[in-house]
Write a protein that binds this DNA or RNA. Sequence first.
DNA 1: TCTGAACCTTCCCATGATGGTAAGGTCAAG
DNA 2: CTTGACCTTACCATCATGGGAAGGTTCAGA
Lengths: 138, 138
Amino acid sequence: MGVMSIGEAAAASGVTAKMIRHYEDMHLIPEASRTLAGYRMYSDKDVHILRFVRRARGLGFSIKQIADLLGLWRDQSRSSARVKALALEHIAELERKIAEMQTMKTELERLAHCCHGDHRPECPILEQLAGDSPADAG
Amino acid sequence: MGVMSIGEAAAASGVTAKMIRHYEDMHLIPEASRTLAGYRMYSDKDVHILRFVRRARGLGFSIKQIADLLGLWRDQSRSSARVKALALEHIAELERKIAEMQTMKTELERLAHCCHGDHRPECPILEQLAGDSPADAG
DNA sequence: TCTGAACCTTCCCATGATGGTAAGGTCAAG
DNA sequence: CTTGACCTTACCATCATGGGAAGGTTCAGA
């Protein structure tokens, strides 16, 4: 598969054709060369880049971060410290989001635990949301 | 504060004026009545609703879910079982997202741990993303 | 050679919740 | 009457992704 259509590159990389075009539009990946008819053409090297992007997305990196990672990947004189710094930043962000959701989950579990969950209308979950119980305001 | 402007309602509820208008546009909250000049007017009851929405958002409920919760809150003949079911669904969704991010975090920590993070270019993080190491494909 | 399926192209719209800004009207205090 | 703070609507942006329409291309099979 030296030269591929966008559909073949999509199948080979795990990135949808739709997203490949989108990544090109936003300059995350290089502009693809075209056939006479205007069809995009991809090489194995392009697929390699697309797989890199897909794996980075799988780890939750943003497009902006992936652009940075691709730059470092290309840069033979990079320092691994810069890559590691990017990773650690992302880890911190993940931790922040996990903690936020964990807090929500814990609170919801507490409320759900208090709720009888039967045919009757009395519901501590709604009471809490309504602020009938004391606690916070605006 | 029997009757308030949108700014006052925002301050009293913790929901920005911007979002109050947005919630009205999407029919999450009732359409506000207007002054002769076209300014929206809010009552204490409206602020109560807005606070409900804000607290529900704070627990991570989606607008769609909050619409359902508001319906149940209004419905004096609701069963608490339905409220609890909504809450449990949301808890499950939170768990799913937390697990997903936890997986990312764990993998990234493993990679970051392997990376020297010094001036040299060798970097297991990039190698993994590039797929130089074995593992998955597209 | 014609035809149809399967592909490609671009362009626009939608998601979900939120923020920003611009252009203009209103109101209250000075 | 002016000024500043507020309100109005309308549009655009975020972030990553998907859907669909309208139209061109390619290739295989009849």
